[in-house]
Design a protein around this nucleic acid. Structure first.
Lengths: 336, 336
DNA sequence: TTGTATGCGTTATCAC
DNA sequence: GTGATAACGCATACAA
């Protein structure tokens, strides 16, 4: 199989390579006949335009990156699915990257792709606590970024978030109205914007109902499954909360495991509500009450905004931060 | 921010662009001092090598594609995670594509990336029934492909699979030994290599124990959740199997939903075992017995083999098809 | 060790 | 409507 490029095609057909190139462009003044002749021959010799070359020439790769904290989470895979759907419509491909909540990985990845690997980025960031000044070295005109879900507030770009404060407030109030007096709040990174927003909703709901905020019940967990198991076991044994509200899906799973271990019954001994987009929440034992974010919609919206930017359409300045609504789905784990 | 490339750096430092270029290569006879001088300046002006250009020049993109049937499945995300881990070590990036079990999407994607978008591909294919002759037009020397899990038998490339026949046999025998006489087998695409392998294990286990194979109990499902719900409801009502063995995770979920709908109790009224890598299988109601494939390991192995090929290392001819072992994890859903 | 020159395969700008 | 030619930014063979 010898190299087949526009030059070899041109030679075979006694044309110039410019004409051949033109045959593959949408809009160009080329004779329909010659175009067909070229297309037919190209098909015959199985020609594919060379991405390396056209990327260089056009300074774009028709690829966008999606950066998420973790892949093994329905929420993020649904977002990716949503983004992919939109991207595909426009002929874009998706580069995936999981940061595992490590700011170094985030920085290294964004930096490494910042000159010609992708045309733009959708990102849910690692954390605010960490130093994300590396972003100042990125030319956001050249490689636009759209944040979703977890964002850096101080970076002035388009952001898609959900109404974390309100959902959190509602979920907490739901527990209070059912009679809970001692509600634990689980978080992975207290200093993170999302953790903070959600914590605020939780606290304000407590305040509204005149329940004292106990710092002992605000539990900062880790990324290690084993550590979390210990932390939560300690919580349930020593502080005996009557409910757990988890701002992170997997901490709810850990809570279930700890309850099984301790012989605690959900919801009798402990109510549980969690941020989660798990599609089989209904099948858990017991079915898990969730704050479910519109994951696929987030992915679609984010991708649309990014692609609009890439197309050079004017940024909708009034909509720098877009807020989508989550849904509180009450199931047996928080039944009274 | 004016354009910063090796030429502008060269000018600023009174060097030639080749020298500057050399500073960024690992092995090149460049004076350590000049290299440091270049690196320091490059860092100062925030230079990033241009991927478009170096890709074209080197005819590689340091990117591999991972093609999976679906993203919203722990099994595949774990595989991606495994592949990503290996890829990252070698400085490769990952392009993700979900085919949604549509051969057209598979063909279009593979074809579209086949000239310079990626250096190689890891793929779990859509199906055998479908015409996959498009692969003959792909230059597998130029863009090597490694199949995993679901493969096209007739394409002679490296494949990573699990011991589907044996796992299926074991799972079925487990149900028989517990006293089941009427075991339904759920599959999505009967003609698919995996479906066939798994069906064979199921049938041979029945044969060994002198249980007649009933075609009515071999149920071909679809990709639509609603359709599957109907199909399975019909199965449970009209054929009253005492066990269900699902070759696909999500069909087990559907079975759970149908049982809830019909008021059937698992495992009392129906035992369930399924191929699944769900990490919270234990938390389902009831905990789901699974045949669990070594997902992350598959991803790692596949990536390693592909990267070895890309490095030009000799293919291990004895290992064209690598078989990894799955694990039967018996939980309450198939307890007697 | 460094500089010069060339090409990777396209697309775009001109002429014709 | 078509052809010649110049970029795109980098990496290498070769010369110095």
């Amino acid at each position: 199989m010898s190299k087949v490029d526009i030059i070899s095609i041109a030679k075979a057909l006694n044309l110039s390579k410019s004409t051949v190139s033109r045959a593959f462009q949408e809009k160009s003044d080329i004779n329909p006949n010659t175009r067909n002749r070229i297309l037919a021959y190209a098909n015959e010799v199985n020609y594919r335009p060379n991405h390396y070359a056209s990327n260089l020439r056009e300074q774009k790769s028709k690829t966008i990156a999606v950066v998420v904290p973790e892949l093994e989470n329905n929420y993020f895979t649904q977002i990716i699915k949503g983004a992919e759907k939109i991207a595909k419509q426009e002929g874009y491909h998706i580069l995936i990257y999981a940061t595992d909540d490590d700011i170094n990985k985030e920085r290294e990845f964004i930096t490494s792709i910042s000159n010609g690997k992708v045309d733009g980025v959708l990102m849910s960031v690692v954390g605010e606590r960490d130093n994300h000044s590396y972003l100042h070295n990125i030319d956001l005109k050249k490689m636009p970024i759209v944040f979703f879900d977890r964002v850096y507030d101080d970076i002035d770009i388009t952001k898609i978030v959900t109404d974390d404060y309100q959902s959190s407030f509602d979920a907490t109030e739901h527990l209070i109205l059912g009679g809970c007096k001692s509600i634990a709040y689980l978080v992975v990174d207290k200093d993170h914007s999302i953790g903070k927003e959600r914590a605020l909703g939780y606290k304000d709901a407590l305040k509204k109902h005149k329940i004292a905020i106990q710092e002992d019940l605000i539990v900062d967990c880790s990324n290690s499954y084993d550590e979390n198991f210990k932390i939560l076991k300690e919580l349930l044994i020593n502080h005996k909360p009557d409910a757990v509200f988890s701002s992170v899906e997997r901490l709810a799973f850990s809570t279930y495991f700890v309850c099984n271990d301790l012989g605690l019954k959900i919801p009798k001994d402990l109510k549980v509500v969690a941020f989660s987009s798990l599609q089989i929440a209904e099948l858990l034992s017991p079915p898990l009450s969730t704050v479910t974010q519109p994951a696929e919609q987030i992915g679609q919206k984010a991708a649309k905004l990014l692609l609009n930017t890439l197309k050079g359409e004017p940024q909708d300045v009034d909509a720098k931060t877009i807020i989508l609504k989550s849904e509180l789905r009450i199931r047996k784990s928080s039944q009274f």
